[in-house]
């Protein structure tokens, strides 16, 4: 029984960790290239979820899964162009405050448009079934979520590794000035990079909507663990963010078995311990973002 309980919570932790990873990777991309802490990232997750909710009746769950993230990314692109672009090169304080205010507006806006009550998103019936009686907690949908996250993460790393855009993003993260001097349109690069980050937020919104239902406040709860995933993994390192997200997900899952009240606090303790022993996080490099 104990092992099953433990297994249940580790699985839970991995699934919630997968959300943290998607969120944190998007945040990390934007942070690394543009030096912007996007406080509105949770808001974009909510937008993605509500878009899925709105279009599901017309094109079904699968259509929404495919269409909602790019739509969210387009909204993100517009926001970047109009509001965030003027702030590049200024003290990071300003982009932080702006996205902070934006998060307020998105939360209140969704409440205004869709109402404060939670909204369910219907998922295909075969995904809602548990896979087996012993492991009742592994529904098809949870497995499906993990697979989607894995595919998305793999595609992101392939994009960064092999495409021209990806190479430029990585180069810009290391030395944006040189990249600009080589004649690459840095403004465009930042916009596309921002859009990729928001795409990931939108995707996690759709997935979260199917699992948890939708609420205007759901993004806020996921934002802080994503921050910690980045800090634990080491700012500037995307693989670090990936490991960090899974690590804190599992850690809070396991803690929930033994000491439920501390399941939120434990990730902060982990962060403190890691900052004490490795000030730059697990995979942070000397000289990056010091």
């Amino acid at each position: 029984m104990m092992t099953q309980l433990l297994l249940f919570n580790v699985t839970n932790g991995l699934i919630i960790g997968a959300f943290y990873v998607l969120m944190a990777l998007g945040l990390s991309l934007i942070l690394n290239l543009s030096n912007v802490i996007n406080f509105a990232h949770g808001g974009f997750l909510v937008i993605g979820g509500y878009i899925a909710y709105t279009i599901t009746p017309y094109i079904g769950f699968w259509g929404a899964l495919l269409l909602a993230p790019p739509l969210t990314a387009i909204i993100g692109l517009a926001v970047e162009r109009v509001l965030i672009r003027p702030l590049y090169g200024r003290d990071p304080l300003y982009s932080l405050l702006l996205t902070f205010g934006l998060a307020f507006m998105i939360e209140d806006g969704t409440r205004f448009i869709w109402g404060p009550q939670g909204k369910p998103v219907t998922i295909p019936a075969f995904l809602a079934q548990p896979l087996s009686n012993d492991l009742f907690f592994i529904t098809g949908y949870r497995l499906f979520m993990v697979v989607v996250v894995m595919i998305a993460v793999a595609l992101l790393f392939l994009l960064l590794r092999y495409t021209r855009l990806g190479v430029r993003i990585r180069a810009g993260t290391l030395d944006l000035e040189t990249v600009a001097a080589l004649g690459i349109n840095v403004g465009m690069l930042r916009s596309l990079n921002f859009a990729v980050g928001i795409f990931l937020a939108g995707l996690s919104g759709v997935l979260a909507a199917g699992q948890l239902g939708l609420e205007p406040t759901m993004g806020t709860g996921l934002l802080m663990p994503s921050f910690i995933a980045i800090i634990v993994g080491g700012i500037g390192s995307l693989p670090g963010t990936l490991i960090g997200g899974l690590l804190i997900g599992v850690a809070s899952g396991v803690t929930a078995v033994f000491f439920p009240a501390a399941s939120e606090a434990v990730i902060y303790v982990m962060m403190a311990v890691i900052l004490l022993t490795r000030p730059r996080g697990l995979f942070g490099e000397e000289g990056m973002m010091s």
């Binding site: 509001l83 003027p86 300003y94 405050l97 702006l98 902070f100 205010g101 209140d108």
Partner: peptide, 10 residues
Amino acid sequence: VGLLFVLVVL
């Protein structure tokens, strides 16, 4: 309040 943040920053 959110709008105030945005306007002040810009």
